[in-house]
Simulated scan of single mutants.
Amino acid sequence: MVRVSRENRSKFYQVKCPDCENEQVIFQRASTKVDCVVCGKVLAEPSGGNAIINAEILAELE
């Protein structure tokens, strides 16, 4: 029997909106469109795996 050590392969990112500079946390593998809560700009779009992130990534959170 083979034991597989599974790590959490997904991350959360703290990102900054390019329009209003609002900072918020988004999921790396977002399955829905993520909008900025202040101005409504699209920060992340789903792509079947990792999301396409349209904002500046400030930090990776665990």
Rank of each mutant, 00 (worst) to 15 (best):
N8H: 08
K33N: 10
S10M: 05
E45Q: 13
C17I: 09
E60F: 04
C20V: 07
C39E: 11
V2R: 12
G49S: 14
E7I: 08
F27A: 00
L61A: 01
V4E: 09
V42N: 10
P46K: 08
N50P: 07
G40W: 09
V38R: 14
F27V: 00
E60N: 07
S31K: 12
E60Q: 13
N22G: 00
F12D: 02
S47W: 06
V37R: 11
E62V: 05
K16L: 01
N54F: 08
C20W: 12
K16H: 01
L61E: 14
Q24D: 12
D19C: 03
G48Q: 11
D35K: 15
I57D: 06
G49Y: 15
S47Q: 11
V38P: 07
M1L: 10
G49A: 10
E7G: 01
K11M: 06
A51V: 02
R29T: 01
V4Q: 06
C36W: 13
E23C: 09
K16E: 14
E45V: 07
V42E: 13
V2H: 06
M1V: 11
E60M: 02
P46W: 11
A44W: 09
G40D: 10
E62P: 15
V15Y: 01
K33L: 08
A30F: 03
E60S: 05
V37N: 07
R29K: 13
A51T: 02
Y13R: 02
V15C: 02
V2F: 04
I57K: 14
E62W: 04
E7W: 04
Q24H: 09
C36I: 13
A55D: 10
P46V: 09
M1H: 12
G40Y: 09
S5D: 06
K41L: 05
A44F: 04
V38W: 05
S10P: 00
A55K: 12
R3K: 09
G48P: 12
R3D: 09
R6S: 04
I53H: 06
V15G: 03
L58K: 14
N50E: 14
G48A: 06
L58S: 00
V2S: 08
Q14V: 14
V34H: 02
